[in-house]
Design a protein around this nucleic acid. Structure first.
Lengths: 158, 158
DNA sequence: CGTTTATTGATACTTCGTATTAAATTTTGT
DNA sequence: ACAAAATTTAATACGAAGTATCAATAAACG
């Protein structure tokens, strides 16, 4: 990272710098990896991609960076399928919204959440300062509604 | 669990039965443990409480039950502080809303979310059937705003 | 009450994430 | 541009969280 000009930094990297953290190779590469993988990634996937991009970067640095990114609200760990390792989603501009199909675990992202009003209300009522949010809906996607039920709760004729 | 009448079951237990699962001791005790602990619990806390309530119940059953409850939308694992083990929240009537303070990791629950409208819109637009949601806001609580900054991002005068 | 079938409990095991510390790299002041 | 100061890193060994396995058990339902 040789004296790169700040106008060329991604929003996430800017965030890191503005929060007072150094822009090290490990951090830049981890963020690249997540962005290349497109979000909703496990730590294992990040580890794999990182060591493909820069084999010298160690395990610990990857985990440390994921922690740091989480604390800064740049990514957010979330459970897509139960009891698996968490998946990190990119919080673009502090927020993220998706639907998880409880039948096939597919995720569908969407943009509009209409949460500004309630955020404002909460800030006033509770005297908090809100910087982001994660909204997850659970349900059954179109495909799964149409297909033969795979889950116990839906098969009632043995 | 000897032939208990269904009218005495908690909503969660009813949910389990209606989904076709047996009401075993392990499942009943795990749910009791979570309710006694009041939600936002780690698996370690559940394990501890369960073995206090019923020492015969094994590790694996507790984890299996947490998985099952998650799949049924009765609880939802969520990350309060980064890189810690997840915390399970009770999804009362399919939904849960809270604010997480990114400074002290305290959580504040709230009730009104005003998400019915967008849920309906999504159901129509994407042809999905939604059964619940989790809404998390991130920010800084009143106490932390008033206190001396503990986090790097806030200390700019060394 | 007895049959069927899902579920359990015990343990050993795998895997994920962490602590530690000397070495390296970025930043900052000049 | 350079050197000093401070933060961050890589490597490895370690600990804890969650899982697979399978014989034994208990729930449901007639």
């Amino acid at each position: 990272m040789h004296h790169e000009k700040s106008r060329h930094l991604s929003p996430s990297l800017l965030r890191l710098r503005q929060a007072g953290y150094k822009l090290t190779e490990a951090r830049v590469v981890v963020l690249n990896a997540i962005e290349q993988l497109g979000g909703h990634v496990t730590s294992a996937q990040v580890l794999e991609r990182v060591s493909a991009l820069a084999p010298n970067i160690g395990r610990a640095s990857v985990f440390r960076t994921l922690d740091l990114l989480t604390r800064l609200g740049i990514v957010r760990p979330t459970y897509i399928d139960s009891s698996a390792t968490p998946r990190y989603v990119l919080m673009r501009d502090g927020h993220h919204h998706h639907i998880i199909c409880t039948s096939c675990n597919k995720t569908i992202e969407f943009e509009d959440c209409g949460l500004d009003a309630i955020a404002k209300t909460l800030e006033e009522r509770l005297n908090v300062k809100l910087t982001g949010h994660l909204l997850e809906f659970f349900g059954v996607c179109a495909t799964c509604q149409a297909s033969i039920p795979l889950h116990k709760e839906e098969r009632n004729n043995p």
